[in-house]
Design a protein around this nucleic acid. Structure first.
Length: 176
DNA sequence: CCCTGATTCGC
DNA sequence: GCGAATCAGG
């Protein structure tokens, strides 16, 4: 597809709004994210400094053409060190007042321990073949998003939303 | 593996 | 000028 003036304008606009190259490519259509990035560079648009999700600056221009290795020298064993990390926590502030918790979760105690998974809050343009496409929220609202959790094989939904989507007759009868 | 942007280079 | 391949990083 050609880079018409309109498309270039849209590119500039979306890029300035901070959308990622792949998102822009998805909106423009007919181009890859590489094409978008290439065009951005050719237009001399400001790249993404440290914000959003890119670094890769100050790289050596050359990937080192060919290593002139002395034949009497064996390849040096690269020593990689594993550093112990502080281990980030994912503690969801459990400050629940036990006297106030009249009703915790509406989970039916009929045997299945179904837990509503946390969604990844993906936007439409970020969905891939492996992401759950279960819509959450009002499409007219600006907090509309998709589940985005991993879906098995080629299924459009994750294992949780699969059940909601297809509701096996046997399971449906047991409900409520 | 998913994603991000950056760079190179044959076309 | 274009963008796939590749690279580097989260």
């Amino acid at each position: 597809m050609n880079w018409t003036d309109e498309r270039v304008e849209k590119l500039k606009k979306l890029w300035s709004e901070g959308l990622s190259a792949s998102q822009i490519a998805a909106q423009l259509g007919g181009v890859s994210r590489n094409a978008v990035i290439g065009k951005v560079h050719r237009l001399n648009l400001p790249g993404r400094g440290k914000a959003g999700g890119t670094q890769a600056a100050a790289r050596p221009k050359r990937p080192a053409p060919a290593t002139p290795r002395p034949s009497n020298f064996a390849a040096r064993p690269v020593t990689t060190r594993a550093v112990a990390r502080p281990a980030g926590n994912t503690i969801p502030k459990e400050e629940i007042d036990f006297e106030t918790q009249a009703e915790q979760l509406p989970v039916p105690a009929n045997g299945n321990n179904v837990v509503v998974p946390m969604s990844r809050r993906l936007e439409l343009t970020q969905l891939t073949e492996r992401t759950c496409k279960w819509p959450i929220g009002d499409p007219l609202n600006d907090d509309f998003h998709f589940c985005g959790n991993e879906s098995p094989d080629n299924s459009p939904y994750c294992t949780y939303h699969q059940r909601l989507a297809y509701q096996p007759s046997a399971e449906r009868r047991r409900m409520r």
